[in-house]
Design a protein around this nucleic acid. Structure first.
Length: 417
RNA sequence: GCGGACGUAGCUCAGCUGGUAGAGCGCCAGGUUGUGGUCUUGGAUGUCGCGGGUUCGAGCCCCGUCGUUCGCCCCA
């Protein structure tokens, strides 16, 4: 066993892992583009204030889970724990608050210092969407529909359920929080120890407690709907109507909550039962207050993020790599011609490989091992006639093909081999 | 930060109440010096995660530690 191991919570993406990862990104990007989203890449580390300004006061735990350090110049920087803050910072610093709406897609690594679990790493990867500018519920519906289409294209939508809720506007939420505190205080004796702490710190979190006793109490808790202002209620009803129109199936889950104050109105999660307790595969909501907290003007926005590792684990069939053509010269004199064929195939867009050494048997074995669909065998007597043997490794049949026609032969037939 | 399970060959794992390591797959070579997949013969490979302890003797028992994993907490 090697002395040097990857740092706890990090891992290498190699072979099938990498292909799953890349397939998730490629699929999401393609569909996001069809919705008009444009890809942004923002730095993986930012001035610590980019995150502390929006997250810092609300929960001190958040600070403990961030990778924060002083750089050589003495500035505090932080590896980004999520994507939205950086996008909002970039929006403001690039003056794009003057050019709304902005429809942003991103993909990349995020960092959180926490205990690794299934599909949950210290360096993990997310894809995400941010639709910044529109205040209309149609924007929420588009963002959700795009997420749904991505899950569908990945083949994981069948396992996932979209759960939606509204957090209302500020007045609605304040009224609701007060009602919750009143209700749970009345049931204080039956609450779990964890939830008693939540009651002090973050009462809405009791709603998604995993404790069985808590769940019974939560079942009788008031929902936000009685406390919604008329505007908030209309917003939510309109969103649901739009989702029906987009044919995105959903269930309402009044227990979905968000910890931070800049969230309001829409909150949603795509949940699967296939990943143990880490069942949320895509989560998002409306955050009308965040851009302002980043120093920009009051700007409505809605978005989601999804863990690439978790989505990759849900892919039923691992993405395949292109089948190769193996070029096999027999004898030193054939090597030059083999190199010509090799490049002609590559330049025609095919995956072509040539082993550097070994006899014919060994090279055919290797061709088999890399999953080659065909082998081009160049012997000296064939070369003298200007041909090579092209062997279909599936059927074993073999045919002499003029050297100049090999690329066309391998790609141009009705049933390419 | 807390709790359970697990660390043995490149991979998946076996290894009895303690007697100084095994299988399958893979890999390498031959049977077959210009024809792969199947078959067959042979071969290489381990600080048994690491450190300490008990013992005549530890892969096995004890303590510690690191890591993995499943949960809890948290979840921006």
């Amino acid at each position: 066993m090697a002395d040097l191991q990857p740092v706890r919570g990090t891992r290498d993406l190699i072979g099938e892992d990498q292909r799953r990862h890349q397939h998730v990104i490629d699929t999401a990007r393609r569909i996001a583009v069809s919705y008009g989203f444009d890809e942004w890449s923002t730095p993986v580390f930012e001035d610590t204030r980019v995150f502390s300004r929006t997250l810092g006061e609300t929960s001190d735990v958040v600070m403990k889970e961030m990778y924060t350090f002083d750089d050589r110049g003495g500035d505090s920087v932080t590896l980004r724990p999520e994507g939205t803050a950086g996008v909002c910072r970039a929006l403001v610093t690039n003056g794009l608050t003057q050019s709304l709406p902005q429809k942003v897609f991103y993909a990349g690594p995020m960092f959180r210092y926490e205990r690794p679990q299934k599909g949950r790493y210290r360096q993990f990867h997310q894809i995400g969407l941010e639709l910044i500018g529109p205040a209309e519920p149609l924007a929420d519906a588009e963002v959700i529909a795009c997420g749904w289409d991505i899950l569908t294209a990945l083949g994981v939508a069948g396992d996932a359920v979209l759960e939606i809720n509204t957090l209302g506007d500020t007045e609605s939420r304040d009224a609701y929080r007060a009602a919750l505190v009143e209700y749970f205080t009345a049931h204080k004796a039956a609450l779990s120890k964890d939830s008693l702490e939540r009651l002090e710190r973050n009462p809405m979190r009791i709603l998604d407690s995993k404790d069985e006793g808590d769940k019974r109490i939560v079942a009788g808790a008031p929902t936000i709907h009685a406390h919604l202002s008329e505007a908030a209620s209309i917003f939510y009803e309109t969103l649901k109507r739009h989702l029906l129109r987009f044919a995105v199936p959903f269930v309402e889950n009044p227990q979905i909550v968000r910890g931070l104050d800049y969230y309001g109105h829409t909150a949603f999660e795509f949940v699967t039962g296939k990943l143990g307790s880490q069942g949320t595969v895509m989560a998002g909501g409306r955050y009308n207050g965040l851009v302002a907290e980043m120093g920009g003007p009051q700007t409505p926005a809605v978005g989601w993020a999804a863990g690439i590792e978790r989505l990759g684990m849900l892919l039923e069939v691992p993405p395949a790599i292109a089948a190769a053509v193996a070029i096999i010269p027999v004898g030193d004199a054939a090597e030059g011609a083999a190199m010509d064929v090799l490049q002609s195939l590559r330049h025609a867009g095919q995956r072509a490989e040539m082993a550097y050494r070994g006899n014919l048997k060994r090279r055919l074995e290797r061709a088999n091992r890399i999953g080659a669909r065909a082998a081009v065998i160049l012997g000296e007597d064939d070369l003298a006639r200007g041909v090579a043997q092209v062997k279909d490794l599936g059927t074993g049949s073999q045919e002499a093909v003029p050297l100049g026609e090999i690329a066309a032969y391998l790609s141009g037939r009705a049933r390419p081999i």
